[in-house]
Each structure stands twice: as structure tokens, then as C-alpha cells.
Amino acid sequence: MAKYRREQKKNFLKKIVGLFPFIIFCLAFEFVPIFILVRDSFSLKSGDLTLQHYQSAFEPTYLKGFWNSIKLSGVTALIGTFLGAGIGYQIFKWPNKKIQSTLITLSDVTTNFAGAPLAFGFIIILGSAGVVTKFLLNTFHWKIYPDFSIYSFTGLILTYVYFQLPLMVLLIIPAFSGLRQDWREAAQNLGANKMEYWRNVGIPILMPSMIAGYMLLFANAFGAYATAFTLTGLRLPLITMQIGSAISGEVMREQGHGQALAVISLLIMGACIAIYQMGTNKARKWSGH
């Protein structure tokens, strides 16, 4: 019996040893750094516990950064969700399957056009010396600057929506195809007209996917750095930009405030991803896969 147990233990060890690289990797490059980040956000250089870093995280500069990030993410996710769902529906309903799959491929490929190249693409079009800017000025004598600026918050919205839209299209098309035909028929059969079907069945069933989409888009914009960095530099403070500055030590003060900002961002992103996961799980369960 004892021998058998020893044998079992050996077997178990043999089995688990293959997982060591992964476990060590996760500890070293995921959990320990994040754990230390959280710890540092609560401690002074001396090692004493403190909430001081969180107090400084709520100073007007950083509040502004958070507010800008949340506003930008919220607005572009909202535009992305609704426009994306609408466009996704039109693509989903497109009668010619070849064109439909080309449109889906287009959405898929354009998601690769992000970050610095995207920001610069918009500068080429709508920058102060941009092609469209100049064209409007020369041809119609319409000076869009300084009322509009691609380097402003509006410009950021325009640029962010560019990467939000195709993402939502890709997310929502499976949701539309998950709407089973027999739900529609069952509703009709029970006396519902088209409107009543959408109100009572179609839209509620799409809801988890829409919420999941919104959350993913929000997180997507909230965590973005390269696009805004290229477009606005550090002129327009976003929270990711401020954390970035804390790394390069451009704003060197008590070390912990960057960690505090990071922990708060982590919580915001974590909440988004958690809701996103719940939404997709629900949608998956509903469509029976």
C-alpha cells in the first residue's frame, strides 16, 4: 500500500514537472511583478504602509488623465458599439456571399492598421498640413483649422473609432448568426410581428454580445498608448500616457504614485474584461454552443 502510494506520488510528480516552465513563467513575469506593483502602491520607500500614493493619484493632473481616458474610451466604445453593430448587421444581411466575405476580410485586415501607422495615416489626411486639409483650403477656401484639429480630443475620437468599428463588426456578426431562425419563427407563430420579435426576443438575445462588445471596446481604447502617443504626444494627458511618463521618470517624485495609477487602471480594465467574459459566456450558452 505504501509502495503504491509512493508510486502514485512519483507519477504525479512526473506529470506535473512538465507544467513547471509555465508555472515559473507565470510567477516570474505575471504574478510577482503585478503583486509587487500592488504592494509598492501601498508602501513608502521605508516600507511602511501608506495610502499617500492613492491620494496623489487623485490630484487634478491625474484625475484629468483618468477622466480623459474614460471619456475617450466611453465615447469611442459607444460609437463603435452602435455603428459597428449597425454596419455588422448590414454586412450580415448582405445577399451576395462573396462581397460579404470580402467585407469581413476588410474588417479583419484593417484591425492591423493601428497604433503609430494609424495615427500617422490620419495626420496625412487631416493634419494641419494634411491632404484633405489643404485640399479644402485651396479648393473651397475652407479653413478647418484651428476649429478642428486632428491633434485634439476630437481627432483622437476620430482615430480611435477607426480601430473600434471593424472590431465591433467582427464581434457582432457571429452574434447575428447566433440568432436562430426558429426563435424568429416561434415568435411569429405565437403571434408576434417583426417589431415585437425584435423588442422581446432579438434585441434581448443580442444584449449580452452588445455589452461584451462595449466592454471590450472600452478596454481596447483605455489600454491604448501608441496611437495617442503618436498623435498628440504628451499634450493631451491620458492615463496610459501618465503611467508611461512615470516609467521613463519624466515626472520623478515619490515612486509609488505611478504604481497607484497602474493599479487603478488595472482594476478598470479587469472589470471590463470580466464583464466582457460574462457577456460572451452568456451569449455562448444562449446560442447553445
Binding site: 436562430r180 426558429d182 416561434a186 426576443v201 434581448p204 438575445i205
Partner: peptide
């Protein structure tokens, strides 16, 4: 009508 796949509204 009763459908093969039940077609109950999941929501």
C-alpha cells in the same frame, strides 16, 4: 408549433 430544437427563448 413545436420545433425540433424546442426554440425556447433563452432570455
Amino acid at each position: 408549433m413545436v420545433f425540433q430544437s424546442y426554440a425556447l427563448f433563452p432570455n
